[in-house]
Amino acid sequence: MMRTRLMRAMALALVICALGAGTGALSITGQLLDYEKGYVFFTTGDGFRVAPDLRLRSYKTGGPTALQPQARMYARATFDAAGDVSELDLSRAPLTFAGDYAAAHKFAVALSPPVANPALVPKHGGGYCANTVPGKLVPVTITVQVPPDTAPTDQVYMTTDISAWNPQAYLLTRINAMQYRLVLQLLSGTVMHVLFDRGSTQSIQRGENGLQQQPYLLCVGDSTVQAYTRTIYHWGDEQHGNLSAPQAFPTPYNPAPFPNLPTPPPSP
């Protein structure tokens, strides 16, 4: 995860590049965190000293503006030769991050010298849950093998923590006698916990040992496609026992395995 954030920071550094603007002055465009006590802060966390004669202008018109710098606002900051921000062009509408961040970073003010953060060292391993660049739409093919006693007409669903464990959140479709499949377009970086069921919380899958199954972790990586397969050993509403579904009172004991036998005519 830390590596992910480091990569995001690098990506930001790439998109904030200098705009020469014909005058040779350095400028960067980004989103503001704060403006107070003589400093303006961008979402990179960097704070820059502002010049005493700071000019506030509209990014759109280039003219004077009534806007005041504040959090969430977008701005283009132009630096003077001393490294102070001499002009802020403000916009409420999103602006594309631009400018030479590396060049501007040397003007950022910080009392303490940087200290390496070991938590940001990229970690290897961890599968799709680690080292993922987020934001890419990835087709994820989810295939489950169901217990062999799953009836041909049964419907199978996926329930997840991001759908408040609604047992009918995602419908899977049968692809053969023992497998069901679902293809979802999910953003890379998505992390969710999932279980499978037959449409009710009573039917949520059980473990191979017959006990409650802990949710599976599903992490979406940034590969072109992703396959996710699981085996379901038992359903929670399997007929090994006598658990009744809600509002289904037990029917009288029927010794015949045919519940709807016709009634023969009365004997003479």
Binding site: M10, L12, Y39, G45, L111, A116
Partner: peptide, 25 residues
């Protein structure tokens, strides 16, 4: 002046100063 502090495990008395932060913090 501005600075960068990191509080670890709820220890607000002893900030780690200057620790490099994740880029999207």
């Amino acid at each position: 002046e501005p600075d960068r502090w990191t509080f670890i495990n709820g220890d607000f008395k002893h900030p780690v100063k200057g620790l490099v932060m994740p880029g999207d913090t």
